[in-house]
Structure formats: C-alpha cells, structure tokens
C-alpha cells in the first residue's frame, strides 16, 4: 500500500468515524427535542403508570448508548425504571411481612433476599439518572446551572430526586450498589436551584423533610414544627396545581417515623382530594405516580395489620375504621 492509498484510507475512515459520531450525537439531540416536544407532553398527560414503567425499562437500550447528548432525557427514564424495580422490592417486602405473620422463617428470609436484590437494581437505575444529570448540568454543589427551558429544569429535578432515592436505596442494602455517599448532600444543594412553585412544591418538600429529620435527631421541637409548616406549604402548592406528589413525600416521611396516625391522615387527605379535584390533565402521570406511591405505603400498613394489601377500591380506608358512627341512632330509642 503506497502513501497515497494509505492517506486516502485514513481520511475515509476518519470521515466515517466523524460521521458516526455526529450521527449518534444528532440522533441523541433529535431524540431529546422530539422527546421534549412530543413524548414528554403525551407521557405526562397519560395516567397509565404501568406504561411509564415499561417505557423506562424498554427505552433504555435505545437511548442510553446515544452518548452525552441524550443525558437530559435519562433522568425521566431512570425515574420510571427505578420505580419499577422499587415496586418489585416493595412487593417482596409485603411477602416478607406476610411470612413473618405466620412465622414462616424460610419464606421471610427468601423475601428479604429478593427485596434486597430488587432494591439494588432500583438503586443502580436511580443512580444512573443522577450521574447523567451531573454529567450534563455539572456538579450540583458547585452552583446552579443555567436552564435553557422548563424541560431542562424538570430533568434536573428528576435527576436529583433519583439521586436521593438512589442514596436511600443503596444505604438500605449496605452500599452494594456503589452509590457515592456525597450524592445526598449534593442533590440537596442542587434542589435549591429548582423553582419549587413551578414544580409542584417537590423541591421545598424534600428540603423540609431533610430539615425535619435533622431537627428530630437533635430533638429540636421548634425546628421540627417549622419544617412541618414548610412541608404543609409545599403540599398546598402541589394541591393548587393538581399535582399532589408532596402527599407521597409526606406519607413516606410519616411512615419512616413510624407515625401510623399521621400516615393514615395523609393517605385519607390524598384520596379525598383526588375525588374532589381531578389532577391537572397535562400532568396526570405525576399525580398518578403519587397515588401509586401512596398505595404502596397503604399496602404496607394494611399487610402489617391484616396480612393483605389495601382492598380494591378502598384506598383511603383502614381496617380499624369506625364502621358505625357514634351518632348512629340506637334501636332502643326508636322502638
């Protein structure tokens, strides 16, 4: 092969290589803009959270290899796929509770094993979304990014939310998914950059929960109350916008505190509000995700007390609800 032929071949290879790169980048950019313009609005308006779950898992192979330009789209997908794995973990948790109720050690231990396996999958997926966020927007602890539009800000919120979920999930399985421990402080720092009122009160609600947890550790009741007031305020922002994700955050917080009465109260409020005021039609999905999360909390409560999950159509009710009100008429007064 002479020099000329060699050069020609090298040039051709370089061209193909560059073209390959640009094709991938172009595909990624097109996917993001198509996603922002068409997929995301349709997706957000849908109320079928199972489709969201399947899409999060199914689209991974199509999108993730598209390189850095696809990064803004990843948090939405991993939020969905992480949710699927997390639900499987929670399903195993219910199996564990049922086995423990009937003193079945082997099944209980098997369920714990499966719960941990699925939690690890959830943590890995959620963390992937967070890492994509950091790649695209920069380290959250080093200042706020300049969002070009609302979609970017939402991707940032989802990515940070996923980071917090990943941190919690991984911590619960002894760090086996390899989520960096500074994910939590970084994600918390980043949440302050998102306009909470624009995003249904979620950022402020998460920040309030963090402060409440800290105040509880220090047994500072004034600070706890302040945090609860802020959480309540954040909840009202979401309620006004027809996206009641903060209810789910509240239910999870009270549940983690072991406060059954407050957990029930939030679940009742969520169900009552959903019946009275429909979700924002453009954001059905987020509201439905909240309901789905709340149902998981309710299922755990129901299973712990009765061995079965929330009966069909009974979300917002509990096994020990008073069936006959105190002011019901007494037959002896009537006959």
């Amino acid at each position: 092969m002479n020099t000329r032929t060699g050069l020609t071949l090298s040039f051709a290879l370089l061209t193909i290589f560059l073209q390959g790169c640009s094709i991938r980048d172009m595909a990624a950019s097109s996917m993001v803009s198509f996603g922002n313009e068409y997929i995301s609005p349709w997706f957000m308006a849908s109320s079928d959270t199972d489709v969201m779950c399947a899409m999060g898992e199914g689209m991974s192979a199509m999108t993730f290899p598209l390189g850095p330009n696809i990064d803004p789209m990843i948090p939405m997908l991993t939020l969905a796929s992480g949710m699927c794995a997390d639900e499987k973990a929670k399903e195993e948790e219910l199996r564990f509770i049922r086995a423990m109720r009937r003193n079945d050690v082997a099944t209980a231990q098997d369920a714990r094993t499966m719960q941990k396996r699925w939690t690890k999958v959830a943590a890995s997926r959620q963390y992937m979304g967070y890492l994509a966020t950091v790649r695209y927007f920069g380290d959250p602890s080093e200042g706020c990014p300049d969002f070009s539009d609302r979609n970017e800000e939402m991707a940032y919120l989802f990515g940070l939310f996923g980071g917090l979920q990943a941190f919690q999930s991984d911590l619960s399985i002894g760090g086996t998914a390899g989520v960096a421990l500074d994910t939590m402080p970084k994600a918390i720092a980043g949440l302050k950059c998102v306009d909470s009122d624009e995003f249904w009160g979620i950022p402020n609600a998460v920040l309030a929960v963090v402060d409440i947890s800290k105040a509880n550790l220090d047994d500072d009741q004034d600070a706890v109350q302040l945090g609860l007031d802020r959480l309540d305020l954040a909840s009202r922002v979401g309620e006004k916008q027809g996206v009641r994700m903060v209810h789910m955050i509240q239910a999870i917080m009270y549940s983690s505190q072991g406060n059954e009465e407050k957990t029930k109260e939030v679940i009742r409020k969520h169900v009552a509000m959903k019946q009275e005021y429909p979700a924002n039609p453009e954001l059905n999905l987020i509201d439905e995700m909240a309901t789905r999360g709340i149902r998981l909390v309710s299922d755990k409560l129901w299973t712990t007390h009765t061995g079965q999950r929330t009966p069909f159509g009974k979300l917002g009710t509990f096994w020990d609800d008073q069936i006959i009100p105190d002011d019901a008429m007494d037959i002896d007064d009537l006959l």
């Binding site: 564990f96 423990m100 003193n103 050690v105 209980a108 231990q109 714990r112 919690q168 911590l171 619960s172 399985i173 002894g174 947890s213 550790l217 999870i252 549940s255 983690s256 505190q257 072991g258």
Partner: peptide, 26 residues
Amino acid sequence: MLMGEGGPEHQLLLDYQTAALQWGVK
C-alpha cells in the same frame, strides 16, 4: 434507628427479627 424505618439500621433489624424467629422469639 437514626434514619428511621426503611433506613439502614431498620433493614438490619428486619434481618435480626427474621433470625430471631428461628430462635423462638417473635
């Protein structure tokens, strides 16, 4: 449990709770 129910210490206690059932304690 510093991090509440669902946190790492709680997970450990759930494993302990399961093991304890084997030793005759609920």
